[in-house]
Design a protein around this nucleic acid. Structure first.
Lengths: 205, 205, 205, 205
DNA sequence: GATGAATGAGCGTTCATTCAT
DNA sequence: GATGAATGAACGCTCATTCAT
């Protein structure tokens, strides 16, 4: 149930709230990606969601609530799918490499959403922002756990930097798509990143 | 002369235009970093710049012009200082490592500006955005050139990915400061990144 | 049957209409006194009345109907109780003084309602307002009748002014309570008003 | 300078602020009297004041500020003119009667304003309301002072009740005009009230 | 060249009312 | 008879921009 704790609705039927919010999120994501949060009007969100402005406000309190719902939902998706990736990797002792490849493919899949997250989280009110950043930290923590298993010799600090690098390189495929996706297919990009992660530039010196 | 081509002014005295725009940029950068472009009003920009709203509009046409001027000026600074870094590295055959370290320190130094760039470029109108992204490409190209010299064995594709990685890792120190700068000093961060760049995780497996 | 003539309901069962409207009035009076008619929403009225917004609208046509019902009911109460006062005074030839004292006590008792009346009647649509003001006139007329009996020497004009004075002084105990009720008990206030009514300031000159 | 302390304006020119606010007050008073504060829109206020909605908001912060300005200005007028009345009465030892007559005439003169005051003060936000009620108290205090001089034999309590009576009877001429002004000329009304004040109903028993 | 008062399109939000279930 | 989700007109307010002085 997306954001039900943080964003109260005046509609009583919980299932309906869930349904309408999904519609709202779907509508809002494209708008936010295309025009950004600030240039998107609430009327546009309502229209894209398939209901009237009045109805929109039965399910949220403020425009920022829509942004929160969108961000929350994206992280929920990303976290869930990352959990699958990590869970099939860690116990199997499956190699680091495969997990990282899965993560990059996931970021490709959720590209649109990740871009929104990247560009608009900062527009959230303080408290909501903290909540979302906490969720982001969970994701980085998952990567750290994965790395810690595969790289027993690495310090916590090193692990942390690597996790942040991988995290951002995954997102980079989306937010720098205008340059990266012009030059590489997804698999080429992943091959490059994995080789750099494993060996650095040592091979080319 | 900042943005003089792209942003006409109704004032004839070029030196004055330059001076006023510098004041405007200085004022706007902090505002944009703190509240974002959209939540900053033109009156606030005028006030922070030390002149009236009427005067502000003698030196720009639209609010977006201010953003453009700010972004342009930041890239100008970054490019100029990167040029120094690269120029003292490439001809000397100075090692890759030192150049990269210099770049990271530069990103630390211009943190505030880089964050603005990162968060607000997307708010620029299409044409202006393209112009700015072009300048960004110049920067990445400088990194590529540097890397190409030091890593003669690497393919153009690999070079490009590495350049983008380094470019973003430098900015990451700023835009993920709430996590990175809590855990590392700048030099620790740089040490980690340089070691990962050179050797990857090979050492820890 | 409150306002049944003026305010049609879509519900057939008259007893039920009566019951629901009583609930509605009880709920609305406090709301109107605390926040005023305009700042009270129909949803709040429905909630305070113990039924849903849909049900509320089965018993009224517009929000103003609620105000009318409230005002009508208050006058009904006031008139009824004033009738008792007057009826026990006039035939008995009971002294003016006692009747006036009873009236003041009544105004104290119905304070909350009188305040609402005082502040919100003007928000009624023209026709409803006229209807209510007519009822108010009945009350003043009762006072006039009472006064006429006790003051045979007074002209109609004088009687009318006195009636209006007494009428408003009674309400004043409620609508200027923040000053009067801080300085006087009800009985002190009544004593003062009665002595002034009977002798004016003649005694103190 | 009306309400300059309580209601900030973004316009710097103080004289202009004063001028525009006078225009605004003049426009708003009729509107408020005719339709009430809540049914008057800010656009109507702007139009009645002779400027645009944007300009209106250069001189106030919220719609309630207009109401405050209106109430404040009315009390200012009333207080000032009452001061004249009292000042020419008290030192001269001029008789109570004449002062009261002057007060009634003043209330007739400022009828429109007094009605607004009477009906809309309650819509003011708490703090502003307290401020205005304080000013009202000053007025009542003036009446008390006047009465105390003329009625040395009366207790403080009695004086206070008389002052409140006279105060409200003066306003009553306005807010019950639909009945009183149909039956009496102003001077008739005053004659009745003065005689009642001085002698009560003693004469008619 | 500088100023700041004026403008009004457009935004986020509310809430009385309706009507399908 | 009762419910509550849906509607959209209308509100208060903001702010980029203009232009007379």
């Amino acid at each position: 149930m997306v954001g039900s704790k943080q964003v109260p609705s005046s509609i009583k039927n919980r299932a309906l709230v869930e349904k309408r919010r999904q519609e709202m999120i779907r509508g809002a994501v494209s708008l936010f990606r295309d025009k950004g949060f600030h240039k998107t009007t609430t009327r546009e969100i309502a229209k894209a969601s398939g209901f009237s402005i009045g109805t929109l406000y039965e399910y949220i309190r403020t425009k920022e609530d829509v942004l929160f719902l969108v961000c929350d939902s994206i992280y929920e998706q990303v976290n869930e799918r990352m959990k699958e990736v990590v869970d099939t990797s860690v116990p199997d002792g499956a190699p680091l490499e495969e997990a990282v490849r899965s993560y990059f493919r996931l970021m490709d899949d959720l590209q649109e959403e990740v871009i929104v997250l990247y560009q608009e989280v900062k527009a959230l009110p303080k408290e909501a922002k903290d909540y979302i950043l906490e969720k982001e930290q969970e994701m980085v923590a998952m990567l750290e756990e994965l790395l810690a298993c595969s790289l027993p010799g690495a310090s916590r600090g090193k692990i942390s930097v690597i996790a942040n690098n991988v995290f951002v390189e995954g997102q980079m495929w989306g937010f720098r798509r205008w340059i990266l996706q012009r030059s590489f297919t997804l698999e080429e990009y992943i091959d490059h990143q994995v080789s750099l992660l494993l060996e650095g530039v040592a091979t080319y010196r």
